[in-house]
């Protein structure tokens, strides 16, 4: 399947030169447009395959995105300190969210962080659902790439306070 795939991701397939591609509109759009795409995709996939598969697919997509993000923006990081700094800077610069680390235990490979003003969920109505599945995968992709371990990332707290903030725990799986 791999050789015949139509949608295998790389940064090249999404276009690099937006100044040339969108000289009038530029390389930004509304958060609502981003969410329109994501949430309609969730809708369609859920209808066809159910919620569990939808979450599974979005988490997997998040992992691919996190790894691509790491390769493009954080691969120069040699220490955990450098990684956290680059993740914080890039998340903010790209408008993904405001990352705040709470625990970074390199010896135990345990991390706890929050993402404020999150691109995926900030401003969504309060519900009991943990919906930042894509973020879980994204964070896993980054940590897996940096450490070489297989991380398990869980959104442990997600709350509505206007700027919906999410807390994630990450630890090596198994």
């Amino acid at each position: 399947m791999d050789g015949n795939r139509k949608y295998k991701f790389s940064w090249d397939v999404i276009g690099a030169d937006m100044a040339d591609a969108r000289p009038s509109l530029g390389d930004s759009t509304l958060v609502a447009v981003y969410r329109l795409l994501q949430f309609t995709m969730r809708d369609v996939i859920e209808q066809r395959y159910g919620t569990e598969v939808t979450d599974e697919l979005f988490r997997a997509a998040g992992v691919v995105a996190g790894k691509a993000f790491f390769e493009k923006f954080c691969s120069e990081a040699k220490t955990l300190q450098e990684l956290t700094r680059q993740v914080q800077e890039k998340f903010r610069e790209l408008g993904i969210g405001i990352v705040r680390f709470e625990i970074t235990d390199a010896e135990k490979n345990y991390f706890q962080l929050t993402v404020d003003e999150d691109l995926d969920c900030s401003g969504l109505p309060d519900s009991s659902d943990q919906i930042c599945i894509y973020d879980e995968g994204f964070i896993k992709g980054i940590l897996d790439s940096f450490t070489g371990f297989d991380f398990k990332v869980n959104e442990v707290d997600c709350w509505c306070s206007g700027a919906r903030t999410c807390r994630f725990n990450a630890q090596v799986a198994g």
Partner: peptide
């Protein structure tokens, strides 16, 4: 939510 934000900020400050 406000309390959680405050808690998260203080935890982040500690970090």
């Amino acid at each position: 939510g406000r309390l959680k934000a405050f808690q998260a900020n203080m935890n982040h400050l500690t970090w």
